[in-house]
Design a protein around this nucleic acid. Structure first.
Length: 429
RNA sequence: GGUGGGAUGGCAGAGUGGCCGAUUGCGGCGGUUUUGAAAACCGCUGUGCCCUAACGGGUACCGGGGGUUCGAAUCCCUCUCCCACCGCCA
């Protein structure tokens, strides 16, 4: 949610922002919101005056003698009828305004590149050397199935397409990665969280996934609850409705959770392997801090670095891209993706997504703090980034560290989580 | 699942139809006192919206929504959440 005052004063910038995100419908919401706002403001002085009149007249009532009251009552009832019509109108306008305001996207920051989709994201840096194999490398699913680590057929039989089952060492590697990610962030001062996986609509709306993301979300209609697609939703919502004191900030959280995505509209896309699946596990970092732009940008770099440090420890080549306007989500002001080298794709595949929102989510969540200086109630800023999403991260781990016989070299950083083992699997090729 | 009790400002906690945007305490801010600090004392201290150049004024908000009434924090309905007890289950 943007500040209504800001929208009123900068309609062109807000409209241009929606268009930079390639969201013309949402740009139209700007004009609708402003039209409703104008109509509302036109009636407010009159409405307030009527209320004032009725209120004051009502106060006199108690002091009047019974016969005087009778006459007064007639007059007051007339006022009431007239007021009710206006209040009805006001309520309708406010409800309509809320809908339109909820549709207006966050304005992309100036460092967001122009572009229509992910093909126009801009590479910021490229780290690590892509390995030259002395043999023909296998895809992760070939290795996984040969090792008996992966079963897509049985998964599909019991749970439908885009599902998987991990067995044996791959199940252990999956867990090892997630534990490493949590430990890394805890060592850096983040508070670990095990959040709810089913949340109310308010949390989905507050983080900006609704309206718009309903088709991507598994919903338990009976209970009005939604399965989270990322722990960003419960963790960012954690302090929603609260008034924190400035000393409590920043809040830094790292959550490990299962995530669920319907992947509607992706038929035929990334159908093989572990890349695009309905259910996965993710370690996510979330920061809530004061409403200061420079500080948000500083945090943004910090959370990207946390993820980069993990990839470097895993000895995986990757690149960081600045996500262009057309590939940016509704609530984000700016986003970096990290893409890790995946030999089977002969390219970099997205493994991380780091967003900053400024106060967009905080406004929707009513997430505020009281400033130390002056005591003013102010909206927080929020940010988040993946630390590790698995099994997707298993793709580069298996593929980049494979050996000709189908066994996998374990990067030293992960060995303590695997009983000290340096190699997983047995020769299968 | 059943029964009963609750939800009030940053926090705690009064308030059962007009005198209540709301007593009081804590916290916070400012001041007096002090070499400085603490303590004590005095004053100030919710948020949104509208009007105003400003001073200031108006209005809405007592968990959410609806209703009764000239008038609702207060009465009624409903939803959500919290607490207690019973049942069931892990």
């Amino acid at each position: 949610m943007l500040d209504l005052k800001f929208v009123r004063e900068n309609p062109d910038a807000v409209r241009a922002g929606a268009l930079k995100k390639r969201l013309p419908d949402r740009a139209a919401a700007v004009d609708k919101a402003l039209a409703i706002d104008a109509e509302l403001r036109a009636m407010l002085p009159r409405l307030d005056a009527m209320r004032s009149e009725q209120k004051n007249a009502g106060k006199e009532m108690g002091k009047l003698s019974p016969p005087e009251r009778e006459a007064f009552l007639v007059k007051q009832k007339e006022r009431k009828v007239e007021l009710q019509a206006h209040e009805e109108k006001e309520k309708q306008l406010r409800a309509d305004l809320d809908v339109q305001m909820g549709l207006i996207p966050n304005v992309p920051d100036s460092d967001v590149p122009e572009g229509k989709d992910d093909s126009e994201n801009v590479e910021v840096r490229r780290i690590g050397t892509v390995r030259q194999f002395g043999f023909t490398p296998k895809a992760h699913y070939e290795i996984g199935e040969a090792q008996g680590w992966l079963d897509f057929n049985r998964a599909a039989a019991m749970a439908g397409s885009r599902n998987y089952i991990l067995f044996g060492d791959l199940a252990l590697l999956h867990d090892a990665v997630l534990r490493y990610a949590v430990d890394l962030l805890v060592a850096r001062g983040f508070t670990p969280i095990d959040p709810p996986l089913l949340v109310r609509d308010a949390a989905m709306f507050g983080t900006g996934f609704f309206p718009g993301g309903e088709e991507q979300t598994y919903r338990c209609e009976k209970d009005g609850l939604n399965l989270i697609g990322t722990s960003e939703v419960p963790v960012t919502s954690l302090h929603g409705g609260e008034m924190m004191s400035e000393d409590q900030l920043p809040k830094k959280y790292v959550a490990r959770s299962a995530c669920f995505r319907r992947e509607a509209g992706t038929y035929g896309k990334d159908t093989r392997g572990l890349y695009r699946v309905h259910q996965f596990h993710k370690v996510e970092q979330v920061i809530v801090d004061v409403g200061d732009k420079a500080r948000s940008i500083q945090h943004h770099h910090e959370i990207v670095k946390n993820a980069e440090d993990m990839l470097q420890a895993f000895e995986l080549p990757y690149r960081v891209v600045a996500v262009c306007g057309g590939d940016l989500g509704v609530p984000q002001a700016m986003k970096y993706d990290i893409e890790t080298w995946m030999p089977s794709r002969n390219g970099y595949g997205e493994t991380h997504s780091a967003s900053r929102f400024y106060d967009y989510q905080a406004r929707r969540l009513d997430l505020r703090y009281r400033q130390k200086e002056g005591g003013k109630a102010t909206y927080c800023h929020t940010l988040n980034n993946t630390v590790a999403a698995s099994p997707r991260i298993l793709i580069p781990l298996l593929e980049n560290h494979q050996q000709p016989d189908g066994t996998i070299m374990v990067p030293p950083a992960l060995r303590p989580y695997l009983g000290g083992r340096a190699v997983l699997g047995k020769p299968v090729f």
